[in-house]
Computed example of a mutant assay.
Amino acid sequence: MNDIFKKGAILDMAQLVDYSEGGIISKQVLKSNAGNITLFSFDKGQGLSEHTAPFDAMVQVLDGEVEIKIGGSPFVLKKGETIIMPANISHALFATERFKMLLTMIRG
């Protein structure tokens, strides 16, 4: 695991991942049998195509703006907002502006 995610230290997640022009960056923060936490940055226009996951996933927007579709319903989230995507329901992400998020997935 990367030393950038040192345990027992105060972390400013939004500052720990840069933007990549035309790209997406992901950094795994924690991983265990119970689930994982991943830090992402998306340049404007980037996204994740529609998919499902067998467990709930929580998105915390750290910077910027994203449109998240859950079961076909669109939600626009901005910095400081959070949404929980339920297990086994299709979802997709599209960066309406460049954005950063912390994704927490918990296995049931």
Rank of each mutant, 00 (worst) to 15 (best):
Glu67Met: 04
Lys27Trp: 15
Leu103Gln: 05
Gly80Val: 10
Met85Ser: 10
Met58Phe: 00
Phe94Gly: 05
Ser73Pro: 06
Leu103Lys: 05
His51Trp: 02
Gly45Phe: 05
Ile4Ser: 08
Ile106His: 03
Asp56Tyr: 01
Phe5Gly: 00
Glu97Gly: 06
Lys7Ser: 11
Asp56Asn: 10
Gly45Cys: 07
Ile106Gly: 15
Ile24Glu: 02
Gly23Asp: 10
Ser73Glu: 14
Gly22Tyr: 10
Phe42His: 07
Leu102Cys: 09
Lys27Met: 07
Ile37Cys: 13
Thr52Leu: 09
Glu50Trp: 01
Pro86Met: 11
Ser41Trp: 11
Gly71Ser: 05
Ile25Asn: 06
Glu50Asp: 13
Leu77Thr: 02
Phe94Val: 15
Ala57Leu: 15
Asn33Lys: 12
Asp18Val: 05
Ile10Tyr: 02
Val59His: 11
Lys27Arg: 14
Asp3Tyr: 06
Pro86Asp: 12
Glu67Trp: 04
Gln15Glu: 05
Ala95Tyr: 00
Thr38Ile: 13
Ser32Ala: 14
Gly45Tyr: 11
Asp12Ile: 11
Ala14Tyr: 08
Lys100Trp: 06
Gln28Met: 07
Asn88Tyr: 04
Ala57Gln: 10
Lys78Gln: 15
Ser26Val: 12
Gly22Ile: 04
Gln60Asp: 10
Thr38Asp: 10
Ile68Trp: 02
Ala57Asp: 03
Glu81Pro: 03
Glu97Trp: 01
Leu16Arg: 01
Phe94Pro: 11
Gly23Gln: 08
Asp18Leu: 06
Phe40Glu: 05
Gln46Thr: 14
Leu103Val: 02
Lys31Glu: 14
Asp12Glu: 06
Ser73Tyr: 04
Val17Ser: 04
Leu39Gln: 00
Glu50Tyr: 03
Thr82Ser: 04
Lys69Gly: 07
Ala87Arg: 03
Asn33Pro: 11
Ile4Lys: 00
Val29Lys: 05
Met105Thr: 00
Gly80Cys: 13
